[in-house]
Design a protein around this nucleic acid. Structure first.
Lengths: 206, 206
DNA sequence: CATAAAAGTGAAAGTGAATTCACATACACT
DNA sequence: AGTGTATGTGAATTCACTTTCACTTTTATG
């Protein structure tokens, strides 16, 4: 006997929230229809009113995450100001995001996604690329403004940023939130920044 | 009718090899008894002559991997010579190892492991720690020898190295080996190295 | 060459999860 | 109030595994 009925739009959001929460807590292996529905307060078969199957549910979650992830970065990337500072802002913002939504890196890099369909792998890779592209653009502009050394490969900088953030997420997951390597990551990023600064600037400053 | 019979020790190795190969190709989600046994050339139930259950099989694989991973690094870490060069050797060695054995990072960071039993998570984390400890020690010795800046947090350097290597592995997995970010990783590492060098050294050189 | 232990086999039981379907009911709209 | 539709339910189905077990067959060894 149905207690309450909800508009499918809202219910979908609830279902995606529940799924992300499960991934955050226990990994995608623990995502199953009964656990999702239990959290939402409906019965497993009711899920199929809102999603064709589990695959489509995961796809929807990935799509929603994509929007949130890229929306955030594009706001900062578009800002004016010192490029090195902006890079650091993005770096810190995403460390924060990982802390708040531990399910996101887990979703993005989970095997469920990595070894889903061809399409899904592509979508995932396109998210990663779009993300890196934003970072590269900042580096390139910084180089035009003569603030960042021409020696720096924009893609390498983007790669480094993503790597550090991601590894914080992985270790957070691995240790169940016990060990937070964000300080190490920040410290590592500062080393990177040293490498960014233009030689001429250094000489002028010293 | 059994075609050939093998000593359990050899058969175990075969089984572990097959399992690692499956993980490399398709991720741990695709590890199942029939696929493993198919590759080895036996029947699923025969696996139980060699391992109590699937859990124990994965544990054994993890244990074997641990040995190989740490054995390699300790060889280099123990060597004499310029600490910055040694760090780079370790970095490059592990990029190579990932290329040769794409299953290893996948195993180490797969959810199957991360969300296995408490013990398994601990074992995994202890591998990571042992790995990082080796790197930290090199940095610390480098600082004593006045070759690496005291500003560098040893753990941050270890974290950075692991992050870069790991992300190469992840993207390799994600793109099915199509995209190899090792060059970006190497380039990023060079930026790090700039941060390592002692200020005094820089001033002397300039 | 006899034989016991180790390794392998195939069938079947047990499990848990995804999905389907016929049926029930809350809600919006008239 | 009456009605159609979207949402929810619970039982049943299907499926892919894992694991057990009684039975073979190989192989090493005395």
């Amino acid at each position: 006997m149905p207690r309450t009925r909800l508009d499918s739009g809202l219910r979908k959001e609830q279902i995606l929230d529940a799924t992300l929460a499960i991934i955050a807590e226990s990994g995608h292996l623990c995502v199953n229809t009964s656990e999702i529905s239990r959290r939402v307060g409906i019965v497993p078969s009711a899920l199929y009113r809102h999603f064709r199957d589990k695959e489509q549910l995961i796809d929807a979650l990935l799509e929603r995450t994509r929007g949130r992830l890229l929306g955030n970065i594009e706001t900062i990337a578009g800002r004016a100001g010192d490029p090195i500072r902006r890079l650091r802002q993005i770096f810190l913002l995403h460390l924060q995001m990982i802390r708040d939504n531990p399910g996101i890196p887990r979703l993005i890099f989970s095997d469920a996604v990595a070894f889903g369909t061809f399409q899904r792998k592509n979508k995932l890779f396109s998210i990663l690329n779009a993300y890196m592209k934003n970072i590269e653009d900042i580096v390139i502009r910084g180089q035009k403004e003569e603030k960042i050394s021409r020696d720096v490969l924009p893609r390498a900088a983007a790669f480094a940023l993503v790597s550090l953030v991601q590894n914080v997420g992985i270790i957070l997951n691995l240790t169940g939130g016990t060990i937070d390597m964000a300080p190490e990551a920040e410290s590592a990023w500062r080393l990177f920044e040293k490498g960014f600064i233009r030689e001429e600037n250094t000489r002028q400053e010293v």
